[in-house]
Design a protein around this nucleic acid. Sequence first.
DNA 1: GTCTATATCCCGATAGAC
DNA 2: GTCTATCGGGATATAGAC
Lengths: 204, 204
Amino acid sequence: MSQSVALQHEPQTHNRARLVAAATESFASRGFHATTTRDISTAAGMSQAALYVHYPSKEDVLYLICRTGLEELLGVMDQARDGIDDAGDRLARIARAFAVWHAQHTALAKVANYELSALTAEHWLVVRDCRHRIERCFRQAIEAGMQQGAFTVVDSHMTTFSIISMGTDIARWYRSDGSWTVDEVADHYAAMVLRLVTDPAGAS
Amino acid sequence: MSQSVALQHEPQTHNRARLVAAATESFASRGFHATTTRDISTAAGMSQAALYVHYPSKEDVLYLICRTGLEELLGVMDQARDGIDDAGDRLARIARAFAVWHAQHTALAKVANYELSALTAEHWLVVRDCRHRIERCFRQAIEAGMQQGAFTVVDSHMTTFSIISMGTDIARWYRSDGSWTVDEVADHYAAMVLRLVTDPAGAS
DNA sequence: GTCTATATCCCGATAGAC
DNA sequence: GTCTATCGGGATATAGAC
């Protein structure tokens, strides 16, 4: 019974997913305002008006992409952190997850980071909260390591900004057909993050 | 004589400068495609059509902003580098100049880094070359230090990307009325850059 | 060089048939 | 839910008076 209901809804969710996927790619490469609803719909194999059956506006599609993307990112960061006691291990694992996600979802990451000025005021508040939680995840890992004496940083906020900048920008320069694998990028990124929180003069 | 000629041209150059300044601010905060030529012209105190007396198109204004901005940045980086022998000092001075410029020209830096997809193909080639020269400046400073044995990095290209990401993103989070002065940001950034190229385990 | 007025085009969103 | 057709608005760029 529930199976037949699911089958009944499949075409709808399938088309919704195609619209979101097409919008993500176009927003990432051309930008939100340079993308037309015709671009999105035709890339998803539908007419222009079909978009409005599934979403009330183009901006709502952007909001959905940003919110679900950042919450997915927060999920992998939380999962990487949980249950790890050592401060260095914990920060390295969070950093690794952060880098992997940005290398694997370059279009989604670009939209969720560089198209936010097109959001409405209310939607921006929600997305900003997601971003603050990501910041907090990194900063708490750094400050925990400082209290344990494992890390030495001048300013945990500025260090957090720098770590996030390095990681999010992976989505702008990483190419899956390039010189590096996702793992190589993630390993190097995690190593650089650890250097940022370690005093070179005071190595143990 | 030449003075009177200069005076004769002053209103023209004055209005051109006002248009570019208004466009830079609007492109930075709202984005190129969300900015109308009316936004630019009226912010500069002129009618909408006046823009086309000075520039052939809105995209040409963007191109001018990006090209002159990046060449100015290259200028301060070259000036910071020249005549410094020690690899650590040289990289730190380049980094410092990079951070100062991004903290002092946040709107210009945002446009020159995040609005490039709106450029025409030909203009993009020129701007891309400026960006490659900036990359090369950092990378050469890093590789020189590696050859001297002062720096240890896994991959000079990826480290260069990370340093540039950290620095350009200053333009997105720095507030001149916030907690830090430009000098504090630049000092911390230069220190983080040096950590990125220094092996914590092998400190001298 | 600056203005007002306008040509030309295209976009987001809606209406209504099927 | 998807389509075709269209409305209403606003964009860039140009024309022509001053």
